[in-house]
């Protein structure tokens, strides 16, 4: 397996042999991966592959049973979530977990809970509004009244307020129309380039994720089964077939390939 990046930057997140359990059930078993500074790294996989658990374990909401997570050289596994946020990782959860009865502006300001410099918080607020003008328009409205796409924008904008070096994005396309998905991913790309936020992106929608990402991992049943440059993954037969839904021609024995075993097993 190659672990090369075209323009090699520093590894800021390094996960080694991580194992997490839900009670007695293993959710991720021995996951190792690296995220380099400035990259968009995506983790693909079907429902129940352990992608969300992986993110939850990084952000400290779940504690790992084994393994290490080092971020900027410090080991952060098993720390309380507020310390992880202070160290520069923010988790934008799946399903747009916002504070429904608070206003949009209050939601965004709570993203800066770990910050205390008022001037820079105000500047960050303007920055968030410049990426999501609709949030500025709706700032005094209760967040629960926003549409799904706007709530996703709010969740990302709120995450930005902690000035993260690494943003963990869990299924940003969940439940959004293809058009809105494009829009959100465009903003994710812009944030990555303009604000220098490294992104770790978990997606079921492999197509948009691979288009945006530099590097990708494929997870299945709690393990990483494949990793490569996003472009290479995009062209790989296995990924095309099992995650991108590209039809393959029937082979000489008259079987569709989906009846066969994946090559990584």
């Amino acid at each position: 397996m190659s672990n090369q990046s075209k323009n090699k930057t520093e590894v800021i997140l390094k996960i080694d042999n991580l194992e997490s359990y839900y009670g007695p059930i293993v959710a991720i078993r021995g996951v190792s991966l690296e995220v380099r500074e400035g990259q968009i790294v995506t983790v693909l996989g079907a429902n129940g592959a352990g992608k969300t658990t992986l993110l939850k374990t990084i952000s400290g909401v779940m504690d790992p049973e084994k393994g290490t997570i080092s971020f900027l050289g410090n080991q952060i596994q098993g720390q309380e979530p507020d310390r992880v946020v202070r160290s520069g990782i923010v988790h934008v959860p799946e399903g747009r977990e916002i504070f429904p009865i608070l206003s949009v502006a209050e939601n965004i300001e709570l993203g800066a809970y770990t910050k205390s410099d008022k001037a820079s918080i105000a500047a960050d607020l303007e920055m968030v509004y410049s990426y999501f003008p609709i949030l500025k328009e709706r700032r005094s409205q209760a967040a629960g009244t926003l549409s799904g796409g706007q709530q996703q924008m709010l969740a990302i904008g709120r995450g930005l307020m902690s000035r993260p070096k690494l943003m963990l994005l869990d299924e940003p396309s969940l439940g959004l129309s293809p058009l809105l998905t494009q829009e959100i991913f465009e903003i994710i790309r812009r944030l990555n380039q303009e604000q220098k936020v490294t992104m770790m992106l978990v997606e079921q929608n492999a197509k948009v994720a691979l288009n945006a990402a530099d590097y990708g991992y494929v997870m299945e049943l709690g393990r990483i089964v494949m990793e490569d440059e996003a472009e290479t993954l995009n062209n790989s037969k296995d990924v095309q077939e099992f995650y991108l839904g590209v039809n393959q021609e029937e082979n000489q024995r008259g079987q569709k390939r989906w009846k066969q075993r994946k090559t990584w097993r």
Binding site: V61, P81, V85, H91, E97, P100, L110
Partner: peptide, 12 residues
């Protein structure tokens, strides 16, 4: 309102 989201925002 949302305990999990509060955790994610670094609220102790």
């Amino acid at each position: 309102q949302n305990q999990l989201a509060a955790y994610y925002m670094g609220i102790p």
